[in-house]
Write a protein that binds this DNA or RNA. Structure first.
Length: 604
RNA sequence: GCCGAUGUAGUUCAGUGGUAGAACAUUUUCUUGGUAAGAAAAAGGUCGUGGGUUCGAUUCCCACCAUCGGCUCCA
């Protein structure tokens, strides 16, 4: 009970802080226009127009907010008539817009006034700040802990989230009940930053970018390539088991195909511009779908062979807007774990369930527990974003919902999140820094069938139009590996580790024997390295630990005599100091057996 | 694309209106070390790119590019 109450209170505190922020900003920048100031996870923000500030101005604003808090200002709610409200906010265009809308929607207009109290008179005086607001708020700023909040950053944000509107300046703040919670949160974010895939990718030499090549175009370095290839191997195995067939398709194509697909009208802005050739315009492919349809159409199909599952690790290029690029999460060139299941209407549900089972297997394999699925439907109020086919939307959304229910996996519904050609199921995970994103997506497409004339002959000898399921359980190599890097903090499970074992001779005397051990490991398909540089043992162990190599094998005189190997296991988080440095002596044959088994079973 | 910030050696970062410095990494030498950094020396930079101001710009101003934090978008 008390916890519940306190969590409600912090919401009020955060909201009240947003008002104080607006108050402090208006004092310092009287011409500023105020937008909205809601609470968010861990804090609050407020949007301002007609203001020019940078993060160096934040400490002064925060200082003023603390002064305001210490004045024990009182929040008071009032109802206002349309005329009163319009008068109060006559210089605030954004507020006027909201007032007009509230009035139109026949909702009551409430305002919050912030007063200061003159102690001697015990009465309220001088309303210092008035905001259009539904509340609720705390009674007085004495409820705010001035040490438990912090203005963190400045960002641009479109008024009401639309690109068409002016861009306002958003000031973000964190707020908690105690200073300790704030400090803990800041500490946590600091720790999370250490797991950032961009940092680890550089430290472990997994991938890189080059300004000379172009933004958003990743290079896979030898160690990162190992992970890519392991994932690809996994996908091939799993897909073969599930009766997929594999293909390879070209990377450029004539424009006609994208006109048929509808991508040119919908997505031309985010495609690389055309390559001009004598016989017309060619585009880098932004998706693999039409190519797989063409393969399907290469011959006629009977209902007996349906469904047909065409798979490819397909490389695509999308000209994402410059500000949208984000390491491997949002590159411009990436390779998808793609496949298209072309099936009849009756087969949709079963195929979808199969796709979801495949997801579950993968997620279990990687130990991904913190995820949920989002059933993404169209927004019936915003139909222009979606293909106009009421009947098909209803049918598709119903089938997907049924499949979702039958899968027994937890899911949420995302209105307006559907693809333009059909509903989808996205697998949502959270990155270490708390950012949520879709790792993979499975979509039902009822428009590709008629558009591309994807048909098969049914059991009544009639031509029947097929449905398409787009699916990519492992997303793209880029996004999935970015996720795995953060998920494992760079300490990949043995089967994915770029270097699986490093052999470290204590001195030059054991160099030759150590080299022979490394060779033996390699002969058994174990990715092994020899660390025989002219450095101290401690340093070479440190380097192996920093490289997060799972098996560190130490060889000294004793090991040569006993014909054994001394294993130091990679430091694992959560282990006691003692367990971290646990060592074990083992015969080489037994070690190879152990490592091979661990790789085979993909132990995490 | 929009708002804000940043850009100095391979990496992480100091610093300055008078053509630059540390640590780690690299190379060489010494050291042969029993579980997370042994020592010394050397080499390494058109201070993101292009303009402008100035006797002189890496430093100040402008533009562009890239990256980062957000917004928008993500077939």
């Amino acid at each position: 009970m008390p916890k519940q109450k306190s969590s409600q209170n912090i919401e009020k505190v955060r909201h009240s802080l947003a008002h104080l922020l607006a108050m402090a900003v208006l004092e310092k920048y009287p011409k500023a226009e105020i937008g909205i100031g809601p609470t968010i996870e861990n804090g609050f923000y407020y949007d301002f127009g007609e203001i020019s500030i940078s993060d160096t101005d934040l400490p002064a604003i925060q200082k003023r907010m603390i002064e305001l808090i210490k004045q024990n200002l009182v929040f008071k709610k009032e109802n206002a008539s349309l005329a009163e409200a319009k008068k109060l906010f006559r210089n605030q265009p954004y507020k006027l817009e909201l007032i007009t809308e509230l009035h139109k929607a026949k909702k009551s207009i409430t305002i919050y006034k912030t007063f200061s109290i003159v102690k001697s008179q015990k009465s309220l005086v001088s309303s210092q700040f008035i905001d259009l607001c539904a509340g609720p708020h705390i009674k007085s700023t004495s409820e705010i802990n001035p040490d438990a909040f912090k203005l963190t950053k400045i960002a641009g944000a479109y008024w009401r989230g639309s690109e068409k509107n002016p861009m306002l300046t958003r000031i973000y703040g964190l707020a908690f009940e105690s200073k300790k919670e704030l400090d803990d949160y800041l500490k946590m974010m600091e720790e999370a930053e250490k797991r950032d895939h961009r940092k680890i990718g550089k430290d472990l030499e997994l991938f890189m970018f080059s300004e000379d090549i172009g933004p958003g175009l990743p290079f896979w370095l030898p160690k990162g390539m190992v992970i890519r290839e392991e994932l690809e191997k996994l996908a091939k195995e799993e897909e073969t088991k599930s009766d997929y067939v594999r293909v390879w398709t070209p990377h450029i194509a004539k424009s006609k195909i994208y006109e048929t697909s509808g991508h040119i009208p919908y997505y031309q802005d985010s495609m690389y511009p055309a390559i001009k050739a004598e016989d017309g315009d060619y585009y880098l492919k932004p998706m693999n779908c039409p190519f797989h349809y063409i393969i399907f159409k290469n011959k006629s199909h009977s209902y007996r062979e349906m469904p047909i599952r065409i798979a490819e690790y397909g490389t695509v290029y999308r000209y994402e807007k410059s500000g949208e690029l984000l390491g491997l999460f949002r590159p411009r060139g990436f390779t998808q774990n793609d496949a298209h299941i072309i099936c009849s209407a009756e087969q949709i549900k079963k195929e979808f369930l199969g796709v979801m089972e495949m997801h579950s297997r993968y997620y279990k394999m990687f130990g991904i527990k913190d995820f949920y699925m989002r059933l993404s439907l169209r927004d019936p109020k915003n139909k222009e974003k979606f293909i106009d086919n009421e009947k098909m939307w209803r049918y598709s959304e119903r089938v997907l919902k049924e499949a979702m229910e039958e899968s027994c996996l937890p899911y949420e519904i995302g209105i307006g999140e559907a693809a333009f050609y059909g509903p989808k199921i996205d697998f949502q995970v959270k990155s270490v820094i708390g950012k949520e994103y879709s790792v993979s997506t499975s979509q039902l497409d009822f428009s590709a069938g008629p558009r591309f004339e994807l048909t098969f002959i049914n059991n009544k000898s009639k031509e029947e139009t097929a449905f398409v399921i787009h699916r990519s359980p492992l997303g793209s190599h880029e996004r999935f590996i970015a996720f795995l890097i953060e998920h494992f903090a760079g300490a990949f499970p043995l089967w994915l580790a770029p270097v699986q074992a490093v052999v470290i001779p204590i001195s030059d005397k054991q160099k030759e024997y150590s080299a022979s051990i490394a060779e033996k490991l390699k002969a058994n398909n174990i990715r092994a390295a020899l660390s025989d540089a002219n450095e101290t043992l401690g340093k070479r162990i440190r380097e192996a630990e920093l490289q997060k190599i799972p098996y560190i094998l130490i060889i000294g005189e004793k090991e040569i005599q006993n014909q054994t190997i001394n294993i130091r296991y990679r430091n694992k988080e959560g282990l006691s100091a003692e367990a971290k440095t646990k060592v074990e002596e083992i015969k080489i044959e037994k070690l190879i057996e152990k490592i091979k088994e661990e790789i085979e079973k993909k132990i995490i």
